[in-house]
């Protein structure tokens, strides 16, 4: 929706979003880890090596991607949709609903891309989560660990599971959003 506002700092915002879209996950992980480590500014929350920390890191990675994709696509078409809605007597709320409806494919692409990034991510998650068994160990960190320990077959098997999950999720998302 940001793409539609006549913001003064829109260009700056677009720059920042574009930069954040391509942030190296390891850097994000490192920054989050520093913030929440015992001696960091948020250390008192004791979040390091917890799932919450991983969620924070993932959110930081994925949000700019989703926002960025929607932002770039909504700039032109969104403006037209907004105008049409206005000329037909729609208010702000109608416009918002219509935008979501009309741009559902763009939103879907953004969400799928974001999801892909999140599920395949390992660097940031390992730094802030620590790959603790039964707690913060996720499939990607499991694969990396088994691979470095020489358990190739286990890591390949897990890789296949990961692929299947990703495939199923994508199919569900597509069916849900594109079907109408």
């Amino acid at each position: 929706m940001l793409g539609l506002k006549k913001l003064k700092y829109k260009k700056v915002f677009a720059r920042i979003i574009n930069t954040f879209m391509s942030l190296p996950p390891v850097v994000v992980g490192l920054v989050v880890a520093l913030m929440i480590s015992r001696r960091g500014p948020l250390g008192y929350l004791e979040l390091l090596f917890t799932p919450v920390a991983m969620i924070i890191a993932q959110t930081l990675l994925v949000t700019p991607i989703i926002t960025g994709i929607i932002f770039n696509n909504s700039k032109e078409r969104g403006q037209i949709i907004k105008q049409v809605c206005k000329t037909l007597g729609g208010d702000r709320f109608d416009t918002l609903l219509l935008l979501i409806k009309e741009m559902r494919i763009d939103i879907l692409i953004a969400v799928v891309t974001g999801f892909g990034r999140a599920i395949s991510e390992v660097g940031a998650v390992m730094i802030v989560g620590g790959n603790i068994r039964g707690h913060t160990r996720v499939m990607t960190s499991f694969i990396v660990m088994n691979h470095s320990m020489g358990n190739y077959s286990t890591s390949i098997a897990m890789g296949i599971v990961l692929l299947i999950i990703s495939f199923i999720t994508n199919s569900i998302l597509y069916n849900y959003m594109a079907g109408d």
């Binding site: 105008q83 049409v84 000329t87 009309e102």
Partner: peptide, 14 residues
């Protein structure tokens, strides 16, 4: 109470 139809009309995807 008024409406405008642009030079390049846009129809909703439905």
């Amino acid at each position: 109470k008024m409406t405008y139809v642009s030079q390049n009309p846009y129809l909703f995807r439905t």
